[in-house]
Measured scan of single mutants.
Amino acid sequence: ALNRGDKVRIKRTESYWYGDVGTVASVEKSGILYPVIVRFDRVNYNGFSGSASGVNTNNFAENELELVQAAA
């Protein structure tokens, strides 16, 4: 299972961040479909780089994520 702070690569092909590595911000335990919230260094097309207006978190299912580096 994934944990907060883990570095993960995104495998959801239609995602803006496909192939990117993000950090797990939190994992919901309530049984929702996309329980893993991942935070990225770059914002998506809703904002400009360096601006706070873009979105830099997204929810994924565990099977859409590949663990790159476990949290220390």
Results as ranks from 00 to 15, higher is better:
1 A>K: 12
1 A>E: 10
1 A>R: 12
1 A>M: 12
2 L>G: 02
2 L>V: 08
2 L>R: 02
2 L>E: 09
2 L>F: 12
3 N>G: 13
3 N>V: 11
3 N>C: 14
3 N>H: 13
3 N>P: 01
3 N>I: 14
3 N>E: 13
4 R>C: 15
4 R>T: 13
5 G>K: 02
5 G>L: 01
5 G>W: 03
5 G>D: 05
5 G>I: 00
5 G>H: 04
5 G>Y: 03
5 G>P: 01
6 D>M: 05
6 D>F: 01
6 D>K: 00
6 D>R: 00
6 D>Q: 02
6 D>I: 03
7 K>Y: 06
8 V>Y: 00
8 V>L: 01
8 V>R: 00
8 V>I: 02
8 V>D: 03
8 V>Q: 00
8 V>F: 00
8 V>P: 02
9 R>Q: 05
9 R>C: 14
9 R>M: 09
9 R>F: 06
9 R>S: 04
9 R>E: 03
9 R>Y: 06
10 I>N: 04
10 I>M: 01
11 K>H: 12
11 K>S: 05
11 K>T: 11
11 K>I: 13
11 K>Q: 08
11 K>V: 08
11 K>W: 09
12 R>F: 03
12 R>G: 03
12 R>P: 03
13 T>V: 13
13 T>N: 08
13 T>G: 07
13 T>E: 10
14 E>D: 13
14 E>A: 13
14 E>C: 14
14 E>H: 06
14 E>N: 09
14 E>L: 06
15 S>Q: 01
15 S>P: 01
15 S>L: 10
16 Y>S: 05
16 Y>R: 01
16 Y>P: 05
16 Y>E: 06
16 Y>C: 11
16 Y>I: 04
17 W>H: 02
17 W>L: 01
17 W>P: 01
17 W>Y: 05
17 W>I: 00
17 W>C: 07
18 Y>P: 01
18 Y>G: 02
18 Y>I: 02
19 G>F: 11
19 G>R: 04
19 G>C: 15
19 G>V: 06
19 G>W: 05
19 G>Y: 04
20 D>N: 04
20 D>L: 06
20 D>Q: 05
20 D>S: 04
20 D>G: 03
20 D>H: 05
20 D>P: 00
21 V>F: 04
21 V>N: 01
21 V>H: 02
21 V>D: 02
21 V>Q: 04
21 V>G: 01
21 V>S: 02
22 G>R: 01
22 G>S: 02
23 T>A: 03
23 T>H: 04
23 T>V: 11
23 T>M: 08
23 T>P: 00
23 T>I: 13
23 T>C: 14
23 T>F: 07
24 V>A: 00
24 V>C: 07
24 V>D: 00
24 V>S: 02
25 A>R: 10
25 A>V: 15
25 A>C: 15
25 A>I: 15
25 A>S: 09
26 S>F: 13
26 S>H: 12
26 S>L: 11
26 S>M: 06
27 V>H: 12
27 V>F: 09
27 V>R: 01
27 V>N: 04
27 V>I: 12
27 V>T: 04
27 V>A: 03
27 V>W: 04
27 V>P: 02
28 E>N: 09
28 E>I: 09
28 E>M: 09
29 K>T: 14
29 K>D: 12
29 K>N: 13
29 K>I: 13
29 K>Q: 13
30 S>G: 08
30 S>A: 12
30 S>D: 15
30 S>E: 12
31 G>N: 13
31 G>Q: 13
31 G>W: 08
32 I>M: 11
32 I>C: 14
32 I>D: 12
33 L>S: 09
33 L>V: 11
33 L>P: 14
33 L>T: 11
34 Y>W: 08
34 Y>P: 08
34 Y>G: 06
34 Y>M: 10
35 P>R: 05
35 P>T: 10
35 P>S: 07
36 V>K: 00
36 V>A: 00
36 V>I: 13
37 I>M: 13
37 I>W: 13
37 I>T: 14
37 I>S: 09
37 I>R: 07
37 I>H: 08
38 V>R: 00
38 V>L: 00
38 V>K: 00
39 R>S: 08
39 R>C: 15
39 R>Y: 11
39 R>T: 07
39 R>E: 12
40 F>L: 04
40 F>R: 01
40 F>Y: 00
40 F>I: 04
40 F>N: 02
41 D>Y: 05
41 D>L: 08
41 D>E: 14
42 R>Y: 07
42 R>H: 11
42 R>L: 09
42 R>N: 14
42 R>T: 14
42 R>D: 15
43 V>H: 09
43 V>E: 13
43 V>C: 15
43 V>A: 05
44 N>R: 07
44 N>D: 15
45 Y>T: 15
45 Y>V: 15
45 Y>P: 15
45 Y>S: 15
46 N>L: 06
46 N>C: 15
46 N>I: 05
46 N>H: 08
47 G>C: 15
47 G>H: 10
47 G>D: 15
48 F>V: 14
48 F>I: 14
48 F>A: 15
48 F>S: 14
48 F>Q: 14
48 F>C: 15
48 F>R: 03
49 S>L: 11
49 S>W: 09
49 S>M: 12
50 G>A: 08
50 G>T: 08
50 G>R: 00
50 G>W: 05
50 G>M: 04
51 S>Q: 09
51 S>Y: 04
51 S>H: 09
51 S>G: 09
51 S>R: 01
52 A>K: 07
52 A>F: 04
52 A>N: 11
52 A>I: 09
52 A>L: 09
52 A>G: 12
52 A>R: 03
52 A>T: 12
52 A>C: 15
53 S>A: 13
53 S>F: 08
53 S>W: 05
54 G>A: 07
54 G>H: 05
54 G>C: 15
55 V>D: 07
55 V>W: 05
55 V>K: 04
55 V>P: 04
55 V>Y: 07
55 V>F: 07
56 N>M: 06
56 N>Q: 06
56 N>S: 07
56 N>Y: 05
56 N>A: 06
57 T>V: 09
57 T>H: 10
57 T>S: 06
57 T>L: 07
57 T>Q: 10
57 T>P: 03
58 N>M: 13
58 N>F: 06
58 N>Q: 15
58 N>W: 15
58 N>V: 07
59 N>W: 12
59 N>Y: 08
59 N>S: 12
59 N>P: 10
59 N>T: 07
59 N>E: 09
59 N>C: 15
60 F>Y: 09
60 F>C: 05
60 F>D: 02
60 F>Q: 00
60 F>M: 01
61 A>N: 10
61 A>V: 04
61 A>E: 07
61 A>M: 11
62 E>P: 09
62 E>D: 08
62 E>C: 14
62 E>A: 10
62 E>W: 09
62 E>H: 12
62 E>V: 12
63 N>F: 09
63 N>D: 15
63 N>A: 12
63 N>M: 08
63 N>G: 07
63 N>E: 11
63 N>L: 06
63 N>H: 11
64 E>C: 07
64 E>L: 15
65 L>V: 14
65 L>F: 02
65 L>S: 03
65 L>C: 07
65 L>Q: 01
65 L>D: 03
66 E>W: 03
66 E>R: 03
66 E>N: 00
67 L>S: 02
67 L>F: 08
68 V>H: 02
68 V>I: 10
68 V>Q: 03
69 Q>E: 13
69 Q>S: 10
69 Q>A: 11
69 Q>Y: 08
69 Q>F: 07
69 Q>C: 14
69 Q>V: 08
70 A>W: 06
70 A>Q: 09
70 A>H: 11
70 A>L: 10
70 A>I: 09
70 A>F: 09
71 A>F: 10
71 A>N: 09
71 A>V: 11
71 A>Q: 10
71 A>E: 10
71 A>M: 11
72 A>S: 13
72 A>I: 13
